[in-house]
Write a protein that binds this DNA or RNA. Structure first.
Ligand SMILES: [Zn+2]
Length: 542
DNA sequence: GATGTTTGACCCATC
DNA sequence: AGATGGGTCAAACAT
């Protein structure tokens, strides 16, 4: 990433029952940002491949308040004072957020952030520990601690809604104003697509919404980037009531039925309606891609949301993470499937050579009895894309450590083992680390071992790449030959099916054939896809 | 009148 | 070259 380049993204959280996890890249080895949010059983993950790897001096992390009346705090992470990864944290709460920004990311810094003045009454604790800049090891710990009266959440209210058994929801608010300019009945899908433009003058952003016949939003695709801030609400309810959502959606539907939990920019007085929304960050160059997965009888459609990088970035340095959301209303399926498409050119650029793109990998959730599988492969239609396909829905909950933690602390330090032990006693990280991913047959710099703990609720084990980063609790010493660690606290063990040292899961013939595809792509795809998978599968009927 | 939606026509890329 | 499908335009319509 070039100096002054930016990655902007946003996330939200609700006023109660959430935890937030925020992963920052190592100043020198970090290439990813990870945001993880958990609203009860809903998960929002946002993973940004930042590729901020410039390997040099200490970095600083700056949080800054959002301009304008809207409760939209955002924070900026400065890398070497130049590479500016602007993370816009959008808060989906019914009250203002007063983040005490900015602050410097300093060694052993502990910063507390208090959010909410009334309605939400929520306290946000942010602890940041910069263990050792010199050794490229950083730790950021953010805790969002709900205050006593956990807020405005009313279960009954939630019941009132029309929660979609499938799909994203009926409302899609992202804070921008849109004008519909067309509608089409796509051939490959039963669902009509509507086309909308941003109504802001000179803004070329468009979005395509695919809805099911029963009006459920099945897919949203954004194209372009807004060249303006979000319009301010015309009215204010209470203290700066505003909800905004960007990049990702959270869906909650632990019990399928007529409920509608939405996340987004609904500003109803009752403050209980949540709209699900996805939108691109405010970067100058974003694109979204629609890919089709209509192989055979599968009618799954895929949309994608790009998390782009600022235009300042050289073309060759651009990273696009295309998240593909798929709903399954029209799919005659046995298993739900989530397809995530990632486009990343970075690895190709940094490696000096292109990796084979005709390989794939299979993974399987290691939870006993869980049949969820994951498949990573290059998109046949465009080798730039890596498509991760999840099949099935986890029949188990997220790790107990995660659920039991009201304010899950996120750490990235030099003691991954300790954390693993603390948060996920059952996770055999050692096994994971010593698996075949590290086998020398990998053509690239596959000395890393990354588990998707951070990004995925159901983390998978991944081979990593030199330029992809350990983005969770890892060893971050870039000079070492490998990085290891995991965010076991977030994870359920998810391992490659084949290379297990101690396979406890019966293996199939179609297991794992990782023959050396870009590690970066794998990781990227896995991180983003995992989160999206979680979003979507949360909505699946049990 | 302003703004947004609907809907058939049109353009263009792909096969 | 023609068929097909996705995306967009723009007139008509609605609010
Ligand atoms: Zn716009």
């Amino acid at each position: 990433m070039l100096p002054n380049s930016q990655i902007k993204f946003s996330f939200f959280f609700l006023a109660d029952h959430f935890d937030l996890q925020f992963f920052l890249p190592s100043p020198t080895t970090g290439t990813f940002l990870l945001l993880h949010l958990n609203y009860e059983s809903s998960i929002l993950n946002t993973v940004i491949p930042a590729d901020v790897d410039k390997g040099s001096s200490a970095s600083s992390f700056r949080f800054k308040p959002h301009k304008g009346p809207g409760p939209v705090p955002d924070f900026t992470i400065l890398e070497n004072q130049e590479n500016n990864i602007d993370c816009q944290a959008v808060v989906a709460v019914e009250s203002s957020m007063a983040f005490e920004f900015p602050f410097e990311f300093l060694k052993d810094t502990t910063t507390k952030i208090c959010a909410g003045d009334s309605a939400t009454d929520m306290k946000v604790d942010v602890q940041m520990d910069h263990a050792d800049v010199a050794s490229n090891q950083t730790s950021l710990q953010m805790e969002l601690v709900p205050r006593e009266n956990v807020g405005t959440h009313d279960p009954q209210e939630e019941e009132k809604g029309t929660f979609p058994a499938r799909g994203i929801g009926r409302n899609l608010e992202d804070g921008y104003n849109w004008r519909k300019y067309g509608q089409k009945q796509a051939k490959c899908s039963e669902n009509p697509r509507s086309y909308s433009k941003c109504t802001h003058p000179y803004c070329q952003v468009r979005k395509k919404i695919e809805r099911s016949p029963d009006d459920q939003i099945m897919e949203v695709i954004y194209k372009g980037a807004h060249n303006h801030p979000k319009p301010q609400p015309n009215h204010h309810e209470g203290s700066e009531t505003c909800i905004k959502v960007e990049v990702g959606s959270v869906l909650k539907n632990s019990s399928p039925g007529p409920k509608d939990v939405k996340v987004g920019s609904d500003r109803r007085a009752d403050g209980m309606e949540r709209t699900s929304s996805t939108s691109v960050a405010e970067t100058s160059e974003l694109s979204s891609t629609l890919v089709s997965n209509d192989d055979d009888d599968d009618r799954a459609t895929q949309g994608s949301i790009s998390i782009g990088v600022d235009a300042d970035i050289e073309e060759s340095e651009k990273i696009e993470s295309c998240l593909v959301e798929t709903s399954f209303a029209s799919r005659t399926v046995h298993e739900p499937r989530v397809v995530v498409q990632i486009e990343s050119e970075v690895d190709m650029l940094h490696d000096g050579h292109r990796q084979s793109k005709y390989v794939w990998s299979y993974y399987k959730c290691t939870s006993a009895g869980c049949s969820v599988r994951k498949h990573v492969e290059r998109a046949s239609h465009n080798l730039k894309y890596v498509i991760t396909t999840y099949e099935g829905k986890h029949d188990h909950k997220v790790p107990a450590a995660r659920n039991n933690s009201p304010a899950l602390a996120l750490t990235r330090n030099t003691k991954p083992e300790t954390q693993i032990k603390d948060f996920a006693p059952g996770f055999d990280r050692k096994t994971a680390f010593n698996n075949d991913y590290l086998r020398p047959s990998f053509p690239g710099n596959f000395s890393n071992e990354t588990k998707l703990g951070a990004a995925s609720i159901y983390p998978l084990k991944f081979p990593t790449f030199k330029h992809t980063i350990p983005y969770s609790s890892f060893e971050f010493n870039r000079s070492t030959t490998h990085h290891s660690g995991s965010i076991a606290s977030l994870s359920q063990p998810f391992r490659s099916r084949q290379p297990l040292v101690k396979p406890k899961i019966e293996q199939r013939e179609d297991d794992v054939y990782d023959t050396g595809q870009s590690r970066t792509d794998h990781v990227n795809a896995s991180q983003s896809s995992s989160s999206l998978y979680q979003h979507i599968t949360d909505n699946f009927p049990s």
